[in-house]
Each structure stands twice: as C-alpha cells, then as structure tokens.
Amino acid sequence: MKHDKILMAHGGGGQLTDSLIHDHILSRLGNEALSPLGDSALLSVGREKICFSTDSFVVKPLFFNGGDIGKLAVCGTVNDLAVAGAMPMALSLALIMEEGLEIAVLDRVLESIAATAKACGVSVVTGDTKTVEKGAADKLFINTAGIGLYPSGLNLGMDQIKAGDRILISGTIGDHGMTIMSEREEIRFQSPLASDCAPLNGLIQGLLDQCPGIRFMRDPTRGGVAATLNEISRATGLNVAIQEDAVPVTLTVRAAADMLGFDVLNIANEGKVVIVVDQAEAGACLKACQDHALGRQASIIGQVVKADSAPVVELVTKIGGKRIVQMPYGRELPRIC
C-alpha cells in the first residue's frame, strides 16, 4: 500500500522503514557507498579506507535507567562504526534544542556525552547547535556522525556469509527497548529493567583480533534481532535457523515483554552485537566474547543454512515446535487484553 503521509511505523526499523529507504531515498540518492546500506559507509581516502556513519537520537524520556540520550548518541554512532569493523576516531555532535529546555538538563546530557566519548576513546571534533520554538521539538534531539579507520586486510560484509556459519549474540536481548517502554508507561517491576546502552568498540576490537573467521556483524537496534536476522537472510538468500532456548533474555525483560505483548526478538538493543562467524571458529569467538565484560552472557543462537525455497528466519521453540520470525512491521503495538 502507498502511504501519502509519514506514519510512526516508517521510523520503526521494520518493513515500512525499509520501503521508505528503498523507494524514496535510494531511488534518488543511491551510490556505491550508500547503496549497500551498511551500518557505516566505506570510503577510500588515498591508500586508507575509512568508515563514515551518522545517527539521530530522539529518545523519550531523555534519562532512563542505564543511560540517557547523550550516552546513546555517542554509543549509537561508535557502535555503527565498530560493527562495520572500523576503529572509531572522531565524532560530530549536533544539538537541536526546544525553547525552554533547562540548561541543567543540557549540562547533564553533555557530561554524559563527555564521559562516554572518553570511555570509547573518541573525541567530539565538530558540532552545531540549533534552537527551535516551543513545540517544534521535544526537549532535545541529538545527531552524531563519526569516522573510523578501517583496517587494511579486513573484509567484513554480508557477501562473506556462507551456509554453516554460526550466529552469536553478545548478551541478553530486549533490555533497552523494554526499559524505555516501561519507563514511558510508568510500569515498575520488582527487579528493575536497565538499558544495555554501551559502547561496543572495545569488545569488537578484541574479537576481530582473535577471530579472523568473523564474516559480518551488526548491532540489533531498531527492529531488534528479528530485523537483523531477516536482513541477513534476505541479503544472502540463505535461511537463518535459531534456537529459542539459546537466546539470552533476562527474566524481567521476558515478563515485561509478555505482559505488554511484545516479541523480545523485535525489541531494540543498544549494547549488543550479532556476529556471523565461520563454524570452525564459533567456539573460540564465543569464548573471546565471554571474556569481555560486555559479552559475559554471549551465546551461539543459531546458524546459517541453505534455503530450499524463499529464504526465511526460522525459530525452533522451547517445546521443539517451529515458527517463522518475520521482519517486524514497524512500531509494535501493545496488546489490549
């Protein structure tokens, strides 16, 4: 169906986002660096290759358990560079502020940006500020862009993925999305939810050093693990088969998702990476992941297999049943009873 107006679901990371990008953006702006739609664009500068990426942040509330919009803005771009294989070097920072935003709030966000950038080993080297009249934005929106050096000899990409490769996730899923949802709806749980928002460049650098068999990585943000696995399946023409009981989920996230009617596979993460790795190196990659503080609960959740017909993502459930994992539609809606 053709939509004549932008719907919230166009920003949800699912099928409508996909059609927005392909039908409206790529059809006009597509080029060699943009069209692969990687987390970062790969550019050649002289003999070096650099990755370039950008991301905008409009999270509500601005502060949440486990993070805030500032930390998210740094981690988001750093992670997009890191999963592409690059070593993040420098960031830009653009602030769009609503008239009336308290300076104390802005300062708190900037402190968080400074601390997170320091932890990632990157600097904010350029920026911009804009203010808009009250009502034209919701308190504070942030855009960051970043560049990183792409090591010579590295060759990551979906085109490297082969049947038999194993799929790893670096830890529990759904933490970020469920935290934001429950804070927005003011739903409290006995053991509190916390966002997993974290910079992944340290973890990923270690993995790349130790595991040359890594084929591809992506941080499963909008649309969650379901979107990432569907992107892999669609791009490679191969099936992705995952085991439900191998997917790490905290009890609180599970309970919150069940209560609100969400599928945890569709929920956004902000500090996790999906790794596709050569079968022979899967064990070593898992161990390397688990040796890092951000990868303790890493798990091999499935594998890439040859598709007999149209490629799908298939889940073997805890009771041994099978079901398809679809590309999320977009915005997940809470169920009503």
Partner: peptide
Amino acid sequence: CGTHTVSIFRSGVRSI
C-alpha cells in the same frame, strides 16, 4: 482467546 492464539503460534504448539 486471542492470547491463546498468540501463545500457540509463538511457541510452535501447532507444529507439534
């Protein structure tokens, strides 16, 4: 019950 429908599909009950 719609919640049964979802649980049945999501857990793969039909397939077993």
